[in-house]
Amino acid sequence: MKKIAIALFGEEVSPRFGGSMRFLVSEIGSDGAGAAAVEEADAVSPDRIPAWLESLGVSAVICGGIPRRYQADLEALGIEVIWGVIGPARNALEAYARGTLERDQFLCRGGRRGGRRRRRCCRPQELGDHDPGSKRAGNESKPG
């Protein structure tokens, strides 16, 4: 079992680690993602978030972007950082559990090249739940 935490902005993956204290936390086992719960860091400052995540037993964090100092703090605690992910957090969680986060192009690590709009990695058709009326899977309204 591996516990992961996805930084949240509304229902979406937070574009920047440290911009929000809310995380979608779930355990990933051989049969996929377990029940996911939204946890709020009881930290007074984003500097304390890495230690809080460690105390939860988290071993990987998913976010949009992350300032270097937080990445270094997390990695020093043995927590893997997966940045460059955008879109609905629950979809990212499922893709991670399936091991298809990269293949489904949720990831937009800076060096990725080729193709049109590679960063629009969580379009409905890529997730198999196409909704022509929506720009994003499961997220018709912008987060607040």
Binding site: P15, R16, G19, G65, R116, R120, K142
Partner: peptide
Amino acid sequence: TGFTADEAIGERCYNVFRSSVCQG
């Protein structure tokens, strides 16, 4: 930003800029 117009257009601005004030 390092992103091309083709990548950025159609995306929500906070996912491109990821600034310190995007979320509040």
